[in-house]
Design a protein around this nucleic acid. Structure first.
Lengths: 174, 174
DNA sequence: GTCAATGCAAACATTTTGCAACTCT
DNA sequence: AGAGTTGCAAAATGTTTGCATTGAC
């Protein structure tokens, strides 16, 4: 499960990206190149804001809007994929050159475990065929408890975890 | 693919809900009852704001915050499930008493097609077992083009659809 | 020279929160 | 009576947009 990509891969991805842009009269700017690099060099999973931060810390100067705009491009050309782990921000992962995989998400500790997606792909093909649907991609995640949490986590605790409503504060009286 | 639930089902769901609340010292209020009813009677898929609106149109008086808070409860006790169709709001669906299913999402026209999830469940069990993971639920969607769109939609158009960035203007040649 | 891209700040949309008043149990 | 709940409006998020300026081709 390699996190950051090798330089080699970055290069191939860059070519794909460049071609994608050229083909539709878009420009290959410094910013777009930098975002691609940052995406490929960072952890596999990330969020937009996080990416922006890590880029700035690395001394690159980019605007937030550019990051958001560029991520869309990268998604469109298939180098990056959107993942919805939480209900808040979108998460991204660079999938270029990675083996297809999906995720197990631990509801308690948030751990993300990847697993090989071959079977899922097979199933997806079968289902799509049955519905005359032209499948292009999929999202699959299994939600539950990882080994550690399922051992240490009595049901009552689990249930309260689920209850997102805030702990119901102490009350003062008039 | 029944959209609204039968009164019978609403009743059973209500009991489950009630018990869930009682078990942890929460109260079964009018608002909570109304939200449940609205959820079950409306279309299978909906968004929070939409639900609020339909409730108000039906003459019920509830605050937005209550709707959001109650939806969380309903998710927690398994009557409602969150679905991420778009990157904007969360969508919900009431799953109580419905056959387990997942979705095909047409990228072009947004159509949602449901399919039986038995195979997915089987696969999920196998995968979870292999990773010593305790699966509780899953999210699965296949993204692509529905039959109609895949016929009428030349590649170039598809690609521009993907490109969420606004400009994506026509290209003229030098 | 053109047309597209950038950065910024303002706009947006959705969801969450603090708090006083209120209600179930 | 008292813990939990509500509604409201304000706050918090995360993401998008308008526009003047800058930059790629």
């Amino acid at each position: 499960m390699p996190r950051p990509a090798a330089d080699e891969q970055i290069h191939t991805a860059e070519n794909l990206y460049r071609e994608y842009l050229r083909d539709r009269g878009l420009k290959y700017t410094d910013e777009r190149r930098m975002v691609l690099q940052a995406v490929m060099k960072n952890d596999e999973h990330f969020e937009a804001e996080q990416l922006l931060l890590s880029m700035r810390q690395a001394g690159m100067r980019v605007g937030k809007a550019t990051v958001y705009r560029t991520l869309k491009l990268l998604v469109a050309c298939g180098i990056v994929k959107e993942v919805h782990f939480s209900n808040k921000q979108v998460h991204y992962e660079h999938t270029y050159g990675q083996d297809p995989h999906d995720h197990l998400v631990c509801r308690r500790c948030g751990r993300i475990i990847e697993f090989d997606a071959s079977e899922v792909l097979r199933l997806r093909t079968a289902i799509a065929a049955g519905q005359r649907f032209h499948a292009l991609s999929h999202r699959f995640q299994i939600i539950g408890l990882c080994e550690t949490c399922s051992r240490s986590c009595p049901i009552s605790v689990r249930v309260n975890q689920l209850l997102a409503q805030k702990p119901a504060k102490p009350r003062k009286k008039p």
